[in-house]
Write a protein that binds this DNA or RNA. Sequence first.
DNA 1: GTCTATACTACGATAGAC
DNA 2: GTCTATCGTAGTATAGAC
Lengths: 210, 210
Amino acid sequence: MVQQRLLDIAIREFGLKGIEGASTRAIAAAAETAMSSITYHYGGKEGLYLAAADHIARQMGEQMAPAVGAAELPDTPEGARMVIHRILDVFAAKMAGDDTANWSLFIVREQMNPTEAFERIYGGLMGQMMERLVELVCIATGRRDANTARVTTITLIGQVIVIRASRASCLKLLQRDTIDADATAALQARISSNTDAILDRLIAERQDLP
Amino acid sequence: MVQQRLLDIAIREFGLKGIEGASTRAIAAAAETAMSSITYHYGGKEGLYLAAADHIARQMGEQMAPAVGAAELPDTPEGARMVIHRILDVFAAKMAGDDTANWSLFIVREQMNPTEAFERIYGGLMGQMMERLVELVCIATGRRDANTARVTTITLIGQVIVIRASRASCLKLLQRDTIDADATAALQARISSNTDAILDRLIAERQDLP
DNA sequence: GTCTATACTACGATAGAC
DNA sequence: GTCTATCGTAGTATAGAC
């Protein structure tokens, strides 16, 4: 389908060059269609940009929703911890895999210079996942202190997104030229172990509270 | 100085739009000089791009070198841990602050699509910091297992870079519109606590090895 | 719906005045 | 060293054929 190709290529080009830098001519040519079909389908460059953001949000939702689980929250610390592990594991696999390469620059650009497109992406599964993680950290550590849970969630996510956002540095450090299945497994295992250590520490710190 | 202004603006524009997307005309205009001075000083757009990368590497070196410490490595686990904390603390402050905003997109773009510019940046303090952290993690955990130390280092760095690379998500989660001094302190404290938990876990896991 | 043709603006590089 | 002027190319948008 023309529109599917157009959106996939738009995500890559907008990710690489931003909305101003990317060229609708180049996007249309790569999608093997005329430039004016962008005008027809999306009203112009800006419309295509927002449609690309929606496309990312939709795909991310489809691929991650099962792991995040929209169902009710677990009610035991052990259950919550299990869900946290599941989410981070799937998320890490996504970040390590090739299929998120094109999304990532688009999203990171929006993270650092948010436009309306960020609202569309965050309003989808990304926001749900982060807020769900905060709740899960609260349950897993038996804390009502939401602020600590929020800051902790940020650091947990950081462990995962670094795989993509610092890809070249990771490859240098690991002395590899791709993140293959072995490297992915090693990262997932370390993230899992770190997460347990972090959550245990939060539980221990709670005992010290007045 | 003209060249200083030119480089600062080039970093911002190249970060936002990439080498292809950015416009030398716009960069020159923002630096209040003629476009042809870019040709004169840097030979053209590509030369300016590489000079911008060198500029980042140089500034990063000046600002972070004291924390990384080129001197000899500490020889006790406690000493190594102290240096790890110091590096991550300073790095987190940098990531939270405004002065790295322009560098960040430039660097992240290079992380995901490396060119020669990445070599210039990584060849500076960034590579030194990461490799130094690997050594410090080895010493702090009493492990000779460099691979575990490398993977751990990646996750430690992830906790810090998320402050910038996922800035908009962090702000949403923290329900703020800036990362002020309070938020920075909270993140630093959590990163520090997490790091201790992670290192302690690594030491404990070591006891279980055959 | 998809294409071609066209109007207008902006791009990078370069030559040459000063 | 810094500027203006200019060339050829490529950008978006739009109108209109089919």
